[in-house]
Computed example of a mutant assay.
Amino acid sequence: MIVGNGPVEEGAGDRIDQSDLVIRFNAVRNFPSAGRRTDVVAVCNTGRPAQAMLGSEDWLNGSAVAACREIWSVRDPEKFLDLRPRLALSHPELDDFCDDRTEDFAAFAASRAKRHRVIARSVHEGVDEALAAYRPEPYVVPSSGLIVVVHVLSSEARSDDEVVVAGFTHQGWAGHPFSAEKRLIDDFVAAGRLSRLSSDPSSSPSQGV
């Protein structure tokens, strides 16, 4: 179960908590209305989001982070180091966007006996390639949610799993290509690779939100 920070249907939290693995994101804003089980917290490990999380006692000691076994850094440090010169020209206002805090998340995870992993740049670049088919408007980077979805779907260890998403509104920061991302997620659903959560346990997950 991959749970974005958007709202979920009433009653969906119970179904989320019944999953074998639950992945949440960043500040986990819909916790606990979208369930409590948290196995992984995937974080934006660069720029202002990283600074905000690492500087917040509420995040560092929050229930979702305390419950998780793993913290995933979504942004490969070398990929974002390579992005810095381009963004300095195209988006000078994002001067701290590529500031890397991966080692800080790794140290925090180690201090709490949690596993830390970094999602490979090849996943990010594969997502960019997949999105190109939908002719997105110019964007900065794909969203963390889409990066994690593709990472999970491309994992051989998860090849036999049913992968379900919830709380994905495909709205937010203008630097993410949300319209194209929604179309890509919809195509994953149509191909049977992914489902969207329904709060009704008698219906197929793909018939939900």
Rank of each mutant, 00 (worst) to 15 (best):
M1G: 03
G4W: 03
V8N: 04
V8K: 04
E10N: 07
G13F: 06
G13W: 04
I16Y: 03
D20M: 07
D20N: 13
D20V: 01
L21Q: 06
V22C: 10
N26R: 10
N26H: 08
A27I: 02
N30C: 04
N30M: 10
F31P: 05
P32S: 04
S33Q: 12
R37Y: 06
D39N: 15
C44L: 13
C44K: 11
T46W: 08
R48E: 15
P49G: 09
A50R: 11
A50S: 14
A52R: 14
A52P: 01
L54F: 12
S56W: 13
S63C: 08
A64F: 09
A66T: 15
S73R: 07
E78Y: 09
K79G: 03
R86D: 09
L87W: 15
L89M: 11
S90W: 02
E93N: 12
D95Q: 12
D96E: 15
C98N: 12
D100I: 10
R101W: 14
R101Q: 14
T102I: 09
F105K: 05
F108P: 02
S111M: 09
S111Y: 11
R112M: 08
A113F: 09
K114A: 04
V118I: 15
G126S: 02
V127G: 00
E129H: 12
A130D: 10
A130K: 14
A132F: 05
A132N: 08
E137Y: 02
E137C: 00
E137W: 02
V141N: 12
S143I: 04
G145C: 00
L146E: 02
L146H: 01
I147R: 03
V148D: 07
V149N: 00
V150E: 14
H151V: 00
S154Y: 03
S154N: 15
S154A: 14
S154V: 02
R158L: 11
R158Q: 14
D161A: 15
D161I: 05
V163G: 06
G167P: 06
F168Y: 14
H170S: 05
H170V: 00
H170M: 13
Q171E: 13
G172T: 07
G172K: 10
P177F: 02
P177T: 06
F178N: 06
S179D: 11
S179F: 03
E181Q: 08
R183C: 01
I185L: 12
F188C: 00
R193D: 11
L197T: 01
S198D: 11
S199K: 07
S199N: 06
D200C: 03
D200G: 01
P201L: 07
P201Q: 06
S203R: 14
S204A: 15
P205D: 15
G208T: 04
